[in-house]
């Protein structure tokens, strides 16, 4: 199934986020081998060069390692994966507070609503 991509942002950046998410969520556990660029490009229905660019970006950040003989794998540095995960969590929280602010809620009101909402679910 082709990946859903947003129309208004560079494709490679969305691929980076998507693979990052698959790594921090444990869909690709630490140390596992990743599909080849071509396989993943075909799954996502994107250009192989764009997928290659996304992989290169993830390699720069250290989440993905390239072994010359064995393709690519997820890092086994669990601390790094935790860091990326909390970085993403922070981004989502910031975005959430921004949206709530746009709706006219103060930070305090937002936190109250959040507690209420979490309480209902328990």
């Amino acid at each position: 199934m082709a990946w859903d991509l947003e129309a208004d942002r560079p494709i490679y950046a969305q691929l980076v986020e998507r693979i990052q998410m698959q790594i921090v969520s444990g869909q690709y556990p630490p140390g596992t081998r990743l599909p080849s660029v071509r396989e993943l490009a075909a799954t996502a229905a994107v250009n192989p060069n764009t997928m290659q660019k996304a992989f290169a970006e993830l390699e720069r950040g250290g989440l993905i390692l390239t072994q010359r003989t064995n393709g690519r794998s997820v890092t086994d540095d669990e601390e790094l994966i935790r860091q990326v995960r909390s970085g993403l969590a922070k981004e989502y929280l910031d975005l959430f507070f921004l949206r709530m602010q746009e709706l006219g809620y103060t930070r305090g009101e937002t936190i109250e609503l959040l507690k209420e909402s979490a309480g209902v679910e328990q």
Binding site: A7, D8, R9, P10, I11, Y12, A13, N47, T50
Partner: peptide, 15 residues
């Protein structure tokens, strides 16, 4: 490139 258009104009090539 496709990603240049998306980066510079904030929209898809189609748009």
């Amino acid at each position: 490139s496709v990603d240049n258009i998306r980066e510079q104009h904030g929209k898809s090539v189609d748009a």
